[in-house]
Simulated scan of single mutants.
Amino acid sequence: MLTISEFGRRAGLSQKALRLYDVSGLLAPARVDPANGYRFYDEEQLERARRISVLRQLDMPLATIAAVLAGSDAEAVIRLDRWWAAEEATTAARRATLEYLRSRLTHTATGLTPRPVLVRDVPATKVATIRTDTDQQFLVGAIVSATNEIMSYLSSVGASLTGHSWVIYHSAVTPEAEGTVEICVPFDGLVDPAGSIAIRVEPAHREAYCTITMDECSFPRIMLAYDLVFDWARSSGTPEAGPPRELYLPDCHLLPRDEPAVDIALPILERNV
Rank of each mutant, 00 (worst) to 15 (best):
A159G: 07
L161S: 06
L161A: 04
T162Q: 14
H164W: 12
S165A: 15
S165W: 03
S165G: 08
W166N: 04
W166R: 14
H170L: 13
S171W: 14
T174D: 04
P175D: 12
P175H: 10
P175Q: 10
E178H: 14
G179I: 11
G179K: 04
V181E: 01
I183Q: 04
V185T: 08
V185A: 06
V185Q: 01
V185H: 04
P186T: 12
F187C: 08
D188N: 11
G189E: 08
V191S: 09
P193W: 08
P193I: 09
A194M: 14
G195T: 14
S196P: 01
I197S: 06
I197R: 03
I197W: 01
A198H: 13
I199R: 04
R200A: 15
R200F: 01
R200H: 13
V201Y: 04
E202P: 01
E202M: 09
P203W: 14
P203A: 14
H205S: 06
R206I: 05
E207Q: 09
A208T: 08
Y209M: 05
C210L: 05
I212Q: 04
I212Y: 00
I212W: 03
M214P: 04
M214E: 00
D215R: 11
D215E: 09
D215Q: 09
R221A: 02
R221L: 15
I222A: 03
I222S: 02
I222M: 10
M223R: 13
L224G: 02
L224A: 06
A225N: 05
D227H: 13
D227A: 13
L228G: 02
V229P: 01
F230K: 00
F230A: 13
W232N: 06
W232L: 05
A233V: 07
A233P: 02
R234I: 15
R234A: 14
S235R: 12
G237V: 09
P239M: 09
P239F: 06
